[in-house]
Design a protein around this nucleic acid. Sequence first.
DNA 1: AAGGAGATAGTCGCATTGCAACTAGTGCCT
DNA 2: AGGCACTAGTTGCAATGCGACTATCTCCTT
Lengths: 192, 192
Amino acid sequence: MSASLRSSPLALTVLALLHHEPMHPYAVQRLIKQWGKDQVVNVSQRAGLYRTIERLHAEGLIAVRETTRDPAYPERTVYELTEAGRRVAREWLDQMLAVPKQEFPQFPAALSHLMMIPPADALRLLERRAERLAETKAGLEAALAAQTDDLPRVTAIESEYLLAVTDAEERWLRSIVDDLRAGRLTWPTADS
Amino acid sequence: MSASLRSSPLALTVLALLHHEPMHPYAVQRLIKQWGKDQVVNVSQRAGLYRTIERLHAEGLIAVRETTRDPAYPERTVYELTEAGRRVAREWLDQMLAVPKQEFPQFPAALSHLMMIPPADALRLLERRAERLAETKAGLEAALAAQTDDLPRVTAIESEYLLAVTDAEERWLRSIVDDLRAGRLTWPTADS
DNA sequence: AAGGAGATAGTCGCATTGCAACTAGTGCCT
DNA sequence: AGGCACTAGTTGCAATGCGACTATCTCCTT
């Protein structure tokens, strides 16, 4: 009954936060945002959050601890992690950390059809991308600089990772842009 | 009628291949594999391919050119790109190249909960990942070395990109593993 | 005190994707 | 003739992405 469940960033995060402390769905969302984890977990569309929690509950990985009935708010169901949940969270985490999963991001797919457009257009578009990445990097650097000192380094390790790969992508883009500008990289274009 | 359609790696690739030459669905799949684009486009599960083609057809981005009726094979519908398809392909490509899209890969999400497990376990898991990435890199390097000379460099540009970011990820992992081994990176673990 | 903006809290529906199973024919090997 | 792998396509379900919608509450303005 628990083996059927697939892992996902959101599901793992829900388990991790409930591991920390029992709470209700909206508190999960707030915590994710407060701790800056919304960079790596898509919680902006709450539909997914409630559906994920429902699913975890149905599979017995989390359980209802209590239902507080504040007159003001709609009912708040506080969930806690079950023993099965603890086990599955650890299994998921091990798997997600150790085994790189084939995912299919948009950019490399688009890149693979670069030859469809003239080199001059490619230059312009990739330069724009490099600039956006520079902004992203600045944001990550600011986030990293903002939180050091009191919290241990591990709490922001995913930002370090994102910074490292974003930096690599930007460097690569700059080198391609240079090659395009210098004419070292070019190709014939069938139609305009 | 065409504005409603969302882009995807697979949809873009179908349009790009039909731009090159009209063909039937299975030929699309074969070409993707032959050209090594299956690294960046998920075509291993054919369901997606047929559904995508249906969708593109319904939106008028591709049209039926002919239906060959080979006695041996099931019916083969040959599709071609329409004018609208050509325009939309270009729009998608521009967008996907210039604007980095927020995606949520598994690894950074898992990384953000690294503190749940003891540093010694983290060391072991991240080391395993680094080894798998090294294998991936070797594959990419082999693919790049295999095809140069006759084909222009742009035909394998997405492999160059993948190599660059995979290399960055591996380097980062090695540095973290070093820090873990040296005790420069550590944290208290609540439960075993 | 009325009105509106914005945050809080949650739901619904649809299009798309991922994944696995299933059919069916064809060529090859033994 | 039987078994196996490859080719070619279909079906169904679970999960995800995305947008729209409902309500309430709080704070600020006028």
